Amino acid sequence: MLRDEMLKLIQAGILAPSADNMQPWKFRIDGDCLELSLDRNLMGLFFDPADVASKMGCGAVLENIDQQARSMGLSIDIDPYSVTDQSTPIRMTFTAHDQQRSDHYATEVFSRCTDRGLYRKSLQVNEADRKKLDDAVRSLSDYSLTFYDLDNQRKAFTKIVYKADTIRFSHEAIHNDFYDVLRFGDHAEKSKDGLAQETLGIESVFIPILRYLRPWRLTHLLNRMVGLHHMMALRGVWLPMVTSPSLVSIVHTGPADYLDFGRAMERFWLQATSCGLSVQPLGAFPLFLARLSTVDGEGFSDTQISQLERLEEAFADITPSYQGTDRQLVMLFRIGYSKCAPNRSMRRTVETFLSE
């Protein structure tokens, strides 16, 4: 394969989502093979327990590369040993077909983004698109997609995510991580990573307030005095959810495979993009549950662990696919039609991801 072809595959890969857009990936080109590994210098966030979020990001990278390879008339073979052995890079080999394939989301790879703005609630997702989304998720084994359509389901879903986010906004480590990755002004243009203020989907009047709240001691004081964490969760997730036409979850049956989770998440997202839908993952609650299951809730207080366990029970009550044993919550989303074009997260140049 030509080097330019490999670079095109890498370009597709790095457009995958990652925890707080930190893009913790490294690539090495070895002839017709491409190796993907994690960059430990860009990991370690509270939202990444046992590398869960980073592994899911790698899974999304693999999905993007697979879709781009299909559009180039290539098939991808992923070395199963390199996937199961986390100490070695994921090794991909590409084989040329006689002609390009049409069953791909390559166009969507380059247009997919997170849209944190408000959606048009009156414009519902039609049945044909709902079926396409369901088919995309079920194209991978042991995954299911749930739409929360009934009023009581929507209220319960919204309450679960809202309460999880109040924990998020009252947690010192998460607060500090957030400000480490938040990019004000032209900092995002310089770093090409992290959360640019324009991508947060909030009104411009809140940006100076965010700057002011950087010191944890001040935020903690306001949490205690006026319930700031409740206000942040109301604007951050409650308002976007109640104005969204659809709230959905992806659940997996069987042992956790976070690389595969990332592929399922990204395939859903690409199909939603193909349908003209805006998408925002609601990641706090799923990643909090991952923290409970992978590191026994390390970093949470006993009270917070008990609260999350109750929220998990409430989630099972409205999600039949999550009932029983050996069930994993992959991700929650809100989807709909945006009121205005979102600002896309930036990406570093391909060359910065290459290693020898």
Rank of each mutant, 00 (worst) to 15 (best):
A196F: 10
V125Q: 13
Y258L: 00
D317H: 08
D177L: 07
A128F: 15
A136G: 07
A16K: 02
I167V: 13
D135G: 06
V181Y: 15
L213A: 10
D4I: 11
I335Q: 11
T253V: 03
G73T: 07
R130Y: 12
M231S: 11
I209C: 08
C340F: 10
L133S: 06
V83N: 04
L308I: 01
F285W: 07
Q328G: 01
Q153A: 04
L239G: 01
K55N: 11
F206S: 10
D48P: 00
D134M: 10
A196T: 02
L145E: 14
Q11H: 13
V330S: 02
Q328I: 02
F47R: 09
A69G: 03
W216R: 02
A128Q: 15
M331K: 04
Q11F: 06
S111N: 08
I90C: 01
K121P: 11
G324P: 14
P49V: 02
D103Q: 09
G299W: 00
L62A: 03
D142N: 11
D85T: 04
F268E: 07
S102C: 08
S87T: 10
T349I: 13
L133V: 04
D302I: 00
L228E: 11
S204G: 10
M232Q: 14
R3P: 05
A233N: 06
R40N: 14
K132T: 10
K8A: 08
K163Q: 09
G194E: 10
V242M: 09
I209L: 15
E266D: 06
Y212T: 05
S321T: 10
S278P: 12
A272T: 05
C33I: 01
K155T: 11
D103K: 08
N21V: 05
V350N: 08
L332A: 00
M6W: 09
P215M: 02
E198Q: 14
G13Y: 06
Q153S: 11
S102W: 13
L34Y: 13
T107K: 13
P24W: 05
L239W: 11
S54K: 01
N223R: 02
I29H: 11
R138M: 03
Q86D: 09
S244C: 09
F261D: 15
M241R: 00
F157Y: 14
P208A: 03
Y179P: 03
Y148G: 06
E309S: 12
G276V: 08
L9W: 08
A341D: 14
D302L: 00
K8I: 05
H220T: 04
G324L: 09
D51V: 07
V125F: 11
K339I: 03
G194D: 07
L287C: 03
P240M: 01
L62D: 09
R183E: 12
I167K: 01
D103G: 04
T88G: 02
E5W: 05
W238S: 04
K55Q: 15
R101S: 14
H230R: 11
D260L: 13
Q68T: 02
A69S: 08
D257R: 07
D326H: 15
K8L: 06
F315R: 01
E189S: 09
K26F: 05
L195M: 10
